[in-house]
Write a protein that binds this DNA or RNA. Structure first.
Lengths: 274, 274
DNA sequence: CGATTCCTTGAGGCATCTCAAGGCAAGTGG
DNA sequence: CCACTTGCCTTGAGATGCCTCAAGGAATCG
């Protein structure tokens, strides 16, 4: 279990309770174990959400955001280790992360797993389900999390009367394609150090975009999950962390990472094998 | 050069001239070297296209297809080795392959290339450009090819009055995401034999969907391009082809491939390392 | 017909994997 | 409160799959 880690200078989850401007979660639901089956009756308004500049409404004008408000997205809590949706499950919603971190995983018939992404606050999940009408991957919470469930049918109705909204959705899907391109680049033509450097720099940027420190953060995922995502074994991930530490690029203590030499790390990422 | 290869039982390019039902390419243009800079004045109607069940109009009803017809997509020839668009180029069109084969490539600053996909007749290219308004990859013709240039602005105008069309476009983008998921699976957790087997089975299915033999086909891409796509070196691709041949799964003669034992190949694809 | 490109194959090297042992922190139960 | 378990991480040593380098063959082209 990786809950409630102490002394964390930049933990999204810790800040959520005080930052979330939309309603207050009733005590009764907060600790309910069965809260992941039925969407919570709590509703969320995009217009007052602290994530509106990162999430779906990003770039939309007032009238479009108000249209989104009319959908009153249901909020839902997902406990650490639990699935928001499973591979093969019927596609009805896309999900926006409100707090916490998720991993998206594919499973091969023989049980081999591939982590295809990590999602943080403000990021969308489930867009892969549109293709076949069922989710192509599973989404698992890496810590206690909260999401907005966005009914895709309603969203696309709304998009049909608002070209701007439609454009935002299309751009988000395109961004997902581009993101996967760069991961393919990584998996196809980088060595272990480049992969881990690229990963850490990416996390760093995303933390920064969320108002947290870009140089010091807590990883929510295990070495094995990082390894799966980066196409390497957990031991190699661990060794590469140690190597970076010896090169004075990082200070690592379990899941706590401090980037000591950003330029050096960037250089490791571009370490062309000349 | 890999043009006009002899004795090819299933070559899309060879058949295009007789199959293409839409207009006839005037002699003058057919051999013009400068035809890839300016969209050809030739226009294409989806409703009469022999690819309509594979391509954009797939699943649409008559009225929506007629709306697509009204856009009169420009046709354009691209010669082998030439780029349909470059990385970083302004995004204005998405492209549908009419005939020929393309590769999509990303280039790293140090010159390393990653092939992110191969596109055949009826498949769309360029959807990754939407995210940032410029193409995130380049598209290079692997043989003389013909495409439809679909102006994205017009298409999305059309989509705003036709929910079905919008849904088709969204589904195609989602399909691209799913496709990249499985490539990540491949790059992240498969060995050389599994990768090549997966690749060949995928090509086989796509050939079949286009009315060609699923068991015998011509590869339009080089060993180096296959290697880049699959995250391995060209020598390893070559050796793996040889290994499959020795295992009596394939018969390989340069770019001509005959699948002898489909089940065996499928099994190699699922070769769990027990 | 030489130049070029692409493919195949061999031999040796190396990055990463595999297997194994041990440490640390947190949780559990007596 | 302590012994024990469990999960995760680190590190070492040896194995190996793929890469690198190199040579040679076959087809194509000007």
């Amino acid at each position: 279990m990786q809950t409630a880690t102490r002394r964390d200078p930049a933990t999204p989850a810790d800040r959520t309770a005080t930052e979330a401007p939309v309603h207050v979660v009733p005590r009764a639901r907060a600790d309910s174990g069965s809260s992941e089956d039925v969407p919570s009756p709590l509703k969320t308004l995009c217009s007052t959400c602290h994530l509106k500049d990162l999430c779906l409404p990003c770039g939309l004008t007032g009238s479009d955001v108000q249209r989104l408000d009319s959908l009153m997205f249901a909020r839902r809590r997902v406990k650490e280790g639990q699935a928001l949706y499973h591979e093969g499950e019927k596609f009805q919603f896309i999900y926006a992360v409100r707090s916490g971190t998720f991993k998206s995983v594919l499973t091969l018939k023989d049980g081999r797993e591939q982590v295809t992404g990590f999602q943080m606050a403000g990021e969308l999940m489930g867009l892969d389900g549109l293709a076949a009408g069922k989710h192509a991957s599973a989404a698992i919470a890496l810590e206690d999390a909260e999401i907005c469930a966005i009914p895709y049918g309603h969203l696309s109705e709304l998009a049909s009367v608002s070209p701007d909204l439609q454009h935002v959705i299309s751009r988000l899907m395109s961004r997902e394609i581009v993101r996967e391109h760069s991961l393919m680049m990584l998996l196809g033509s980088m060595n272990a150090e480049e992969r881990l450097a690229a990963f850490l720099l990416n996390i760093s940027q995303r933390m920064k975009a969320r108002g947290y420190s870009a140089s010091e953060f807590h990883l929510r995922m295990s070495r094995a999950e990082i390894g799966s995502y980066l196409g390497m074994k957990l031991e190699t991930v661990s060794r590469t962390f140690s190597a970076f530490q010896q090169q004075r690029l990082l200070e690592v203590d379990k899941k706590h990472v401090r980037i000591v030499d950003l330029d050096g790390l960037t250089h490791a990422f571009e370490m062309r094998v000349q």
